[in-house]
Nucleic acid binder design. Structure first.
Lengths: 336, 336
DNA sequence: ATGAAAGCGCTAACAG
DNA sequence: CTGTTAGCGCTTTCAT
């Protein structure tokens, strides 16, 4: 068995309580006693059992994080941010991947709720009502999603889309397609809203292309529709989709951006590496992860309710190779 | 406060012990009692506190997973596999990302060791001696790395490299460069070994290119060296590196595979999506994750030592666009 | 088949 | 400043 607080107490010739104090509230114990305890602890390689401590303090020192798909670089970055921030605050993080299945979100939340101080639901797909059911056992913070009064950290999706659209309009595009992501994705809704508002104001024809999976394959599948729509530019729900678009356009021999411009969203690493490099809306993934942990931890420290909180992080358009002035002849003409 | 076993006991009119039994060893309690308990538990939404249970059973139901870099799609896949297998076995998983920093591996291991039944160290960079120090508190399994007698799950890196090299040789390549990954990476060593063995047997000039970070940037940085080496084909430590090679070669206007062939390793999603699609050695990432969890769990169930165990999974070359017959004129000639 | 009681490792009053 | 005592929520003898 691993060494317990009793072993240390015995070795240092003090009581368990003193060991506990010496280690967690050092100022409450005399210097020489503390020294003795610390020496004994070090010698025995003592590491307190956090689970046992949690049983009594009510704080486990653990956070839970639930994401739709770790294979999506967007979420991988978020996880990195969360994990780093948690570690800095001396917390550990449970990770769970729902595989884009909304039902699993609630199940996994429940499974984790008892072992964590707080739970971060990242881009949850479940409807508001189901989400509301989560969190009787633990503090819950939403990330990249808002629902009711739930505390949350989001990014300004609508503004990002505004920037993208205005950029395209400035280049002369007047008919622009949007390849929508998951129907149940909150950020997809936000992006559509931002797009619609800006399009109306700018007198732009906005073509809405069905809902596609937020992956490379989704973009591949959507590309032909985008071309057929007569749009001179197409915005993908996210970078993966935009990359899929580029791939399929390339395969058809449709030059980007000469025949059609393409814009993504998220700014995952791949976008800059792609050739041509993808114009995209940069989303502060790591920072959002860190901010969410910060919010969660501050709520926990505040003890009771601090009321509903919401933080929104800015987004920023990054112009790269895939956008340029609108082609003079309609896109259709350039297909073979 | 959340509902405890006492609440259920009270509601069902039985003792805590009976509730405990009814829930974890149903056959030891009369059917009608069990029904009453189950009803009460459901009604109150009772979920046992695993930490408390762990305190007495010694099993927490948690696994820990430490990886060098979540942003690397290779590890993201591994995590997905691990998480899925753990969930299937009703376990939760702690994730920790070391940011490719070897020192953090040991620290994080220690931090987690008390809260988990077992720890998976994926591709740890720390030297054997340091690794040996980990695991007095918990069961440790290595993944994608071997060290001493430690149980481990690996993939057949050497054979993968053999396949890649033989493929290139069959195409007529006789001078082939390898862009090495991290100096402290075990799989890098394996890959070099496999390459060297096959090269000697096949009479191939193998050019070893310094150590580069296992990322896109590493490949970008290595590309010019590869070209200057006069090799007609270059193998990247992993796909990220290979993709970086492709990018830089493209930027210099060196046609792939016409002037030089490129091969990667891992088969991350991106490789197939890239244009040209990358020839690579497929590594069973998800399966390896699952297998590691399986091994770990079986060790835990076996109770005592089951002796050293090692499982090796096969790798498979996937031929795509970036390899072809060796150019007749040396690569150098095609640079401008 | 069930209950009473002890105790996992730790912290939090409460004395002294 | 330090020791004693009482539990956190749960499982497990040991009785019955």
């Amino acid at each position: 068995m691993a060494t317990t607080i009793r072993d240390v107490a015995r070795a240092a010739g003090v009581s368990q309580a003193t060991v506990s104090r010496a280690l967690s509230m050092p100022e409450l114990v005399r210097a020489d006693t503390r020294a003795r305890v610390e020496a004994a602890a070090r010698e025995l390689g003592y590491r307190p059992n956090r689970a046992a401590r949690g049983l009594i303090t009510g704080r486990t020192g653990n956070l839970g994080l639930i994401v739709p798909d770790l294979a999506n670089p967007f979420f991988a970055s978020v996880v990195k941010g969360v994990q780093a921030a948690a570690r800095a605050a001396d917390h550990s993080v449970f990770i769970a991947d729902t595989d884009e299945e909304a039902g699993a979100e609630v199940d996994l939340s429940r499974a984790l709720s008892k072992q964590v101080d707080g739970l971060i639901l990242c881009s949850p797909r479940a409807p508001d009502e189901e989400l509301a059911a989560v969190g009787s056992d633990t503090t819950v913070v939403l990330m990249n999603r808002m629902a009711g009064e739930r505390p949350s950290v989001t990014v300004d999706n609508a503004d990002g889309m505004r920037q993208a659209l205005e950029h395209l309009v400035a280049l002369g595009h007047r008919r622009i397609a949007f390849v929508a992501g998951p129907r149940t994705s909150w950020s997809n809704a936000q992006r559509e809203t931002g797009l619609r508002g800006t399009a109306e104001a700018g007198g732009v024809d906005l073509v809405h292309l069905g809902h596609f999976p937020p992956q490379f394959e989704g973009g591949v599948a959507a590309a032909d529709l985008a071309v057929a729509s007569g749009a001179t530019a197409v915005i993908g729900y996210n970078d993966l989709v935009a990359l899929g678009l580029l791939s399929r356009l390339g395969a058809r021999g449709i030059p980007v951006p000469d025949a059609i411009s393409v814009v993504g969203c998220d700014d995952i690493g791949m976008s800059a590496m792609n050739h041509p490099a993808l114009t995209t809306v940069s989303v502060p993934k790591r920072s959002a992860g860190r901010a969410t942990v910060g919010l969660l931890l501050s709520m926990l420290d505040a003890g009771a309710e601090a009321g509903p909180v919401h933080r929104e992080l800015p987004t920023q358009l990054i112009v790269r190779d895939t956008t340029t002035v609108a082609p003079v002849s309609p896109t259709k003409g350039s297909t073979r």
